[in-house]
Amino acid sequence: MAPSKKKHASCQPCIIPGGFTVLSLQFSSDSVAQHSMYVKEHRVRAEKSSRRPLDRTLFVLNIPPYCSEGVVKDLFSQFGSVESVELRDHPGSFQESGPRLSRFFRPAGKQGFKVGYIVFQNSSSLPAVKSHPHDVPLVVCSEQRPVATGVQKWIQQYTESFIHPDKLLQIVDTFMQDYDKRKEEEAERQKQEAEQQQEEEEGWVKVTRGHKGAKARPRSEAANQRTLQREIRKKKRKELMNFYTWQHRNTQKEHIAELRKKFEEDKQKIALLRAQRKFKPY
């Protein structure tokens, strides 16, 4: 009997150079074409945001356009509970750029392949994703999770673009309340800095209590700089002009020579005045 040409599933993950694991993606169970995504544990030392904990964040490349944040969350929920999903056009550190706007006030996003940051609730979900077999694709669209494409997707987007006036008013009111709160906090902060600067100009520096065992220090970086400048000026005033002994001796010699020269000039002036003086008793 001739050997079967059908390839058996390897049940092994596919790891490529760079430490990325390849995950196969299939739009539906009856689709022939497959798509590849590349996942890796997110470990960036420069990442300081608490939104991406290093032990629970998965970095994903080559996410297709038909996968929204909700679809990506459902896909990876089979490996563990997903806390948050962030899709971006390019990889980069998380930056808070002002208040979070509603989707009705954000510009239209770029339609293309994206990168994603998936945060799980447990760190044990990352090894489960990286050990997923390459021959077992993840199915995007199913009866339990339908994903609209083509004309149906356009109709859905057009329908969702309309918003009820009451809901829009609620969104605007919430944004304005947050805006007023931020303005009040900024004004209070500027007022405190102005008062602190005035106290420092008068010779007082206000300090705050740190953690136990820590020394008190000025509250702001600007106060630290001003205190340092004052110390530098004070040190310069106290600094001796002639530090070395030979410099001090030469200066004394020059000073004595100058005094002697001035003394001789004064003697000549006095002799000249005496010669010019005329005494006439009669």
Rank of each mutant, 00 (worst) to 15 (best):
W246R: 06
S28H: 11
Q156T: 13
V139Y: 02
Y179N: 04
E96R: 11
K183N: 06
D173L: 12
K280I: 10
E69H: 02
Q268S: 08
R100W: 10
Y117L: 06
K110R: 12
K278P: 06
F27S: 04
W246V: 06
S123G: 00
F162S: 03
D74R: 15
T174L: 14
E265A: 10
P218I: 04
N224E: 12
G80M: 01
C141M: 08
T227V: 11
R56S: 13
S49L: 04
K130E: 15
K181D: 14
K280A: 09
E188W: 11
V205Q: 02
E258M: 03
E86R: 09
H42F: 15
K73F: 02
H255Q: 09
H42Q: 10
Y282N: 09
D266K: 13
G80L: 01
A33V: 14
Q177G: 08
L75E: 03
F104I: 04
G150M: 08
Y158K: 12
F243L: 15
L228E: 11
S36R: 11
C141G: 01
F94I: 05
A187D: 02
S49V: 05
T149H: 05
K6T: 10
S125G: 03
R260E: 14
C141P: 01
A222W: 03
Q111L: 09
V207Q: 09
A271H: 04
F20P: 01
E199F: 00
R233K: 11
A2P: 00
M176L: 12
S131K: 06
P91E: 06
V32K: 14
K6N: 07
G213D: 07
K191I: 04
K262Y: 02
A275G: 06
K262R: 12
G112Q: 13
E41Y: 00
P146H: 10
R51W: 03
Q197S: 12
T245I: 04
